[in-house]
C-alpha cells in the first residue's frame, strides 16, 4: 500500500524502505566483496571507488559494465552501461575477455541447474555485451561537465542504461586548476547531477578516483584525491588497497553498510574471489 503524503514531492520512509528492498544491485563477480556491499553496487546510489595505480580500478569499471547486462533470469539487471573514459585507459580487448568469461559463467550456471542435459538457454554472444556499452571519450573538464549534463537526455532515450561509470572523475580536474574553490564548486555540481540521475532512472553511478598523499599528524598518508569537500559527494566510498600480497576492498563510507573489508583478485577472467592458496608461481 502507498501512504498518503500531504507534502508534494515527498515520500514516506515506509515507502522508501519498500523501494530500497526492491532495488537491485550489480554484482562485482567477487562474492566476498558482494557480501560486504550487501549484494553488490547498488542502484540509486553514487559509489566512489579509489585506489593506487594498478590496483584494479579500471578492471572493476569494465567488470561492472559487463555485469550490469547479466539477464534477469540469472539474477542480473539485464541493463546497459555508459562508460565515460577521461584517461584513455579503457581496454577494448579486456572488455571482450571479461564478456567471454561472463558468458562462460552463465553457461556453467545453466548446466548446473539443468542436469537433464537440455541445451543452454543463454544465447548471448560477447559482441552483444560490447554493443551495450556506450563509450564516451572525454578530453577536458569542460567536456566532462557537458557529458554529465547531457546524460539525462541520453538516458531518457536509452532507458535500459543501469550503470554510469566515470573512469576517472579525477583526471582532468587534477591537471588544469589553479582555482581550487572553482574546482570544488564544479565537482559539487557534477555530483549533485549524478545523484539526481541515479535516483531518476534507478541506476548505479560508479566514480573511479585516484589517490594522493596528504600530510597529517606528522606523516604522509594516502587518501583519495579531490579534497575533503569532495569526500562528502558520494553515497558510498570504497578504497581498494594492498594488504600484504592480496588486494582488498574497504568500505570507507556508507550510510547503510558497516565498514568492512574483503579480499578480491584480478584474474584473466576479470574480478573474482581471492584464491591466495592457489599460487601459480612458475619459477624460482
Amino acid at each position: 500500500m502507498v501512504h498518503y503524503v500531504f507534502l508534494l514531492g515527498a515520500q514516506s520512509a515506509w515507502d522508501m524502505l519498500h523501494e530500497e528492498k526492491s532495488c537491485k544491485s550489480i554484482t562485482t563477480s567477487c562474492s566476498d566483496l558482494d557480501e560486504i556491499l550487501g549484494g553488490g553496487i547498488n542502484c540509486k546510489e553514487v559509489t566512489e571507488i579509489g585506489g593506487v595505480p594498478g590496483i584494479g580500478k579500471t578492471q572493476m569499471g569494465i567488470q561492472l559494465a559487463i555485469n550490469v547486462q547479466i539477464p534477469a533470469q540469472y539474477g542480473g539487471l539485464g541493463g546497459k552501461a555508459v562508460y565515460i573514459d577521461t584517461e584513455g585507459s579503457f581496454m577494448v580487448e579486456r572488455a571482450l575477455q571479461i564478456a567471454e568469461a561472463c558468458i562462460e559463467d552463465l553457461r556453467e550456471y545453466d548446466s548446473f541447474l539443468r542436469k537433464d542435459g537440455k541445451p543452454c538457454q543463454i544465447n548471448k554472444q560477447p559482441n552483444d555485451f560490447l554493443a551495450n556499452i556506450f563509450y564516451f571519450r572525454v578530453c577536458s573538464y569542460t567536456e566532462q561537465i557537458a557529458v554529465v549534463n547531457y546524460l539525462e537526455k541520453f538516458i531518457s532515450e536509452h532507458e535500459d542504461v543501469k550503470v554510469v561509470i566515470i573512469d576517472s572523475i579525477t583526471f582532468h580536474f587534477r591537471q588544469d586548476f589553479d582555482n581550487m574553490a572553482l574546482r570544488t564548486r564544479l565537482l559539487g555540481g557534477m555530483a549533485l547531477k549524478l545523484m539526481k540521475l541515479a535516483n531518476k532512472f534507478s541506476l548505479a553511478v560508479v566514480l573511479l578516483n585516484q589517490v594522493t598523499t596528504k600530510y597529517s599528524e606528522g606523516s604522509f598518508q594516502l587518501t583519495l584525491a579531490l579534497g575533503d569537500s569532495w569526500s562528502h559527494a558520494c553515497t558510498n566510498r570504497i578504497i581498494l588497497y594492498w594488504n600484504g600480497n592480496e588486494r582488498y576492498a574497504y568500505i570507507d563510507k556508507s550510510p547503510s553498510l558497516q565498514s568492512a573489508s574483503s579480499p578480491y583478485s584480478v584474474t584473466a577472467k576479470g574480478i573474482r574471489n581471492s584464491v591466495s592458496n592457489c599460487k601459480r608461481v612458475k619459477m624460482m
Binding site: A65, V82, Y83, F90, V92, A95, L96, N127, L130, A131, N132, I133, F134, Y135, F136, R137, V138, C139, T142, E143, I145, A146, V147, V148, N149, Y150, K153, F154
Partner: peptide, 15 residues
C-alpha cells in the same frame, strides 16, 4: 552541453 558533449560509440564499434 549536448553540443559540446563528445559523441558516443559502442564498445563493439570500437572493437
Amino acid at each position: 552541453s549536448e553540443i559540446v558533449s563528445p559523441p558516443y560509440q559502442t564498445v563493439l564499434s570500437l572493437l
